[in-house]
Simulated assay, not measured.
Amino acid sequence: MTNNTSVQTRILVVDDQAVMRRGFCSMLRLADHPFAIEEAADGIQALQLFEQLRPDLVLLDVGLPEVSGIEVARRIHSLEPLAKILMVAELEEDFLQAFRVDARGCLLKSVEAQELLNAVGLVLCGYLVFGKAIVRLIFEHAYLPEEPSKPGKLAISLTKREQEILGLIAQEYTNSEIAKHLYISPRTVDSHRARLMQKLGTRNTAGLVRIAVQQGLLQEPAAALRAYYGT
């Protein structure tokens, strides 16, 4: 988060449960850098406030009634494709839905204040924030038995460097960390990541890892999981 206190970071908190909504607002007010916080109790109000305020970040409940959080995220991105949305959910299983609408992260509603503040800061700085739960779900989803209608493996050829970077991405290394690990520049890593997404036909990291596992492009997926979980 920026240290420039003359311009407040605007956050829209969306949750139909007043207790949860106010709880998130209270957590956000603990930040060293003051946020300008607005609240919405449903999807329609959230969309109206987003269009009026264009907040820097939307903290959005997945399980909104009537107009769901997933639908709200879709409509927000139709208004502002680069909008930063951090979703909150009751269950880890909802995280996959958040990925499909290009949310920048997803947290459980049981999140503690410091974890929430850390996640908000990271998303505002351009990072994805999903943690280990979503990585596990991606791998589990990728290893489901194939259905008869499921397409076969794609004709994808990766260079040795692309395979190295793909493996590190699967372990949730940032571009900066990958650059240090491989002794290359972050810009080079970013170029490789963009090329990988183009080759695999996806727009985000979740899709990149999921397709890579499904297509057998991660040479040692089990080892990657062990490294990620520290086991």
Score class of each variant (00 low, 15 high):
Thr2Asp: 15
Thr5Gly: 01
Thr5Arg: 12
Gln8Cys: 05
Arg10Met: 07
Val14Arg: 06
Val14Thr: 07
Val14Gln: 03
Gln17Met: 14
Leu28Lys: 07
Leu30Gln: 14
Ala31Tyr: 03
Ala31Val: 06
Asp32Asn: 13
His33Glu: 13
Ala36Cys: 06
Glu38Cys: 06
Glu38Lys: 13
Gly43Phe: 04
Leu49Met: 10
Glu51Gln: 12
Leu53Phe: 03
Pro55Met: 01
Asp56Ile: 03
Leu59Met: 08
Leu60Thr: 07
Leu64Asp: 06
Ser68Phe: 01
Glu71His: 14
Ala73Glu: 01
Ala73Cys: 13
Arg74Trp: 01
Arg75Gly: 03
Arg75Asp: 07
Ile76Ser: 03
His77Pro: 00
Leu79Ile: 13
Glu80Val: 09
Ala83Lys: 05
Lys84Asp: 02
Lys84Thr: 15
Leu86Ile: 12
Met87Ile: 09
Glu90Asn: 10
Glu93His: 11
Leu96Tyr: 02
Gln97Lys: 14
Gln97Glu: 08
Arg100Trp: 02
Arg104Leu: 04
Leu107Asp: 01
Leu108Lys: 09
Ser110Ala: 11
Leu116Thr: 04
Asn118His: 14
Asn118Val: 15
Gly121Glu: 08
Val123Arg: 00
Cys125Lys: 12
Val129Phe: 10
Lys132Asp: 14
Lys132Met: 09
Ile134Trp: 04
Ile138Phe: 02
Pro145Glu: 07
Pro145His: 05
Glu146Arg: 14
Pro148Val: 08
Lys153Val: 15
Leu158Gln: 10
Leu158Arg: 14
Lys160Arg: 12
Arg161Lys: 10
Ile165Lys: 06
Ile169Met: 06
Ile169Arg: 04
Asn175Phe: 02
Ile178Cys: 06
Ala179Asn: 08
His181Pro: 03
Thr188Ile: 02
Thr188Arg: 08
Ser191Val: 15
Arg193Pro: 00
Arg193Leu: 12
Gln198Gly: 15
Gln198Val: 04
Gly201Cys: 05
Gly201Asp: 03
Thr205Ala: 06
Thr205Val: 14
Gly207Ser: 08
Leu208Val: 11
Val209Leu: 01
Ile211Ala: 11
Gln214Met: 09
Gln215Thr: 05
Gln215Pro: 15
Gly216Asn: 11
Leu217Thr: 08
Leu217Trp: 01
Arg226Gly: 05
Ala227Tyr: 03
Gly230Lys: 08
